[in-house]
Design a protein around this nucleic acid. Structure first.
Lengths: 226, 226
DNA sequence: CGAGACATTGAACTGAATCAAAGCCTGTGG
DNA sequence: CCACAGGCTTTGATTCAGTTCAATGTCTCG
């Protein structure tokens, strides 16, 4: 779902540079001024909500092509932040100039809407994971989703993909304790369904897993890339 | 955040009529053809994901002004549907014509993007409810959110609003069992924090509740209305 | 009055959290 | 090289928040 030459140029013209962020560091939070919006070029990042009590919910994982709209992110309130999971490369744009372009160009704005909508679809399913699937099902579903996303980006083999997440990330994304994630992961491996090793995820029985957790990839749509 | 006269006319010109749906009936599901998109004019509706196993997750409650983009909803896959909670009035548009308008008009498309983004913000917080808040906190947070949304629509008093949801809805939205919702609701009342009676929600101790569940309304943004 | 939808209550159970230690790498510095 | 520090994973025992199961109560409406 690529944009036309014209739109890409409109966007590229407000690009102000690139930025590198180290694994574990903050890309954007409440203290950031919103002048820079970004596209994630390489690496993985996460959007999270931290409660006063220290509990954390990861709402989304950002991968190549994810767009970070500074205005939008900052409006969410001060518990939200976006942090790098691996080392990350970002294309940086001036938020103001970008918004001006969007205001002038309907195709561009449509693309932004599509982006937000396809992200919404992901959130629906993620919410269903947490609210109505068992720990085991959640993990199975999440692993399948992740592999499929990577595959759609052309970054995965047929039954494996790179997987830089720690069990802590899985726990905070799935609303589980780290220890329980560990146990369930072991069970997934013992059953010969999926395993994580050396920064890689292996999907050993796609159809078995899919059936087990009611996975249907139609909510994962190709997204326009800026 | 109203649109200009020009945009409103562009939209109104593709309106094909209104539709009434009875409480409990389906507004849109996988069997629907996507020709009609809609704006919710009055009443409450919900977007839900039903798993094969019968479990249900309500991902969002739709209230006056909510936009239902048929293309988007149908792409989510066949477990998803939108159903009326109360009797509902909808403004109906031709999806095709609407998309054409969006493609021509940048302001309109921007509004669509903003709409999707503000819905995303709601989903983030809803996800945090389910993933990282206790049953009590979730309910407290959800009730505050609901009251605030109604207030932003000018449909609520200072400490109360109309509340047509059944305990079943609360359970399926918050990822809890109906019985537990009942017990927690009782506790909320006993503590003098909030109560639900006769189709109304009463917020009895706003600041106490807010503190208890870490509620901060900045994620609830005014939304453009079509 | 009787049926159906919803709310309430209680008791027993369980999936997942919590608490508490060990393991196990990997890199660093003596 | 070895030691040992810090980050991560693994395992076990115990506890608990929330579920499940099973009634009972209550309202509304034909």
């Amino acid at each position: 779902m690529p944009l036309d030459q014209e739109e890409l140029e409109a966007i590229q013209s407000v690009r102000t540079g690139t930025r590198h962020v180290r694994a574990g560091e903050v890309i954007l939070d409440h203290d950031t001024n919103g002048e820079e919006s970004m596209t994630l070029f390489s690496g993985w990042a996460m959007r999270q909500r931290a409660l006063e009590s220290g509990r954390v919910q990861i709402t989304s994982f950002l991968m190549a092509g994810s767009f970070i709209d500074a205005d939008f992110e900052l409006a969410n309130g001060d518990g939200y932040s976006i942090e790098a999971i691996t080392d990350v490369e970002l294309c940086v744009f001036s938020t103001g100039d970008l918004k001006k372009r969007f205001g002038e160009n309907a195709v561009l704005s449509r693309a932004l809407a599509t982006l937000a909508q396809s992200e919404e679809a992901l959130l629906f399913e993620h919410m269903t994971d947490i609210g109505r699937r068992t720990a085991m099902e959640r993990l199975a579903h999440f692993l399948l989703e992740t592999h499929t996303r990577q595959k759609m980006l052309g970054m995965a083999g047929n039954d494996y993909c790179s997987f830089p997440l720690r069990q802590r990330h899985l726990a905070d994304a799935m609303g589980l304790s780290l220890e329980h994630v560990n146990r369930m992961l072991k069970e997934l491996k013992d059953k010969g369904w999926a395993s994580i090793a050396d920064g890689r995820l292996y999907i050993l029985d796609f159809s078995g897993l899919s059936r087990y957790c009611d996975f249907d990839d139609s909510y994962l749509r190709p997204r326009p890339i800026f």
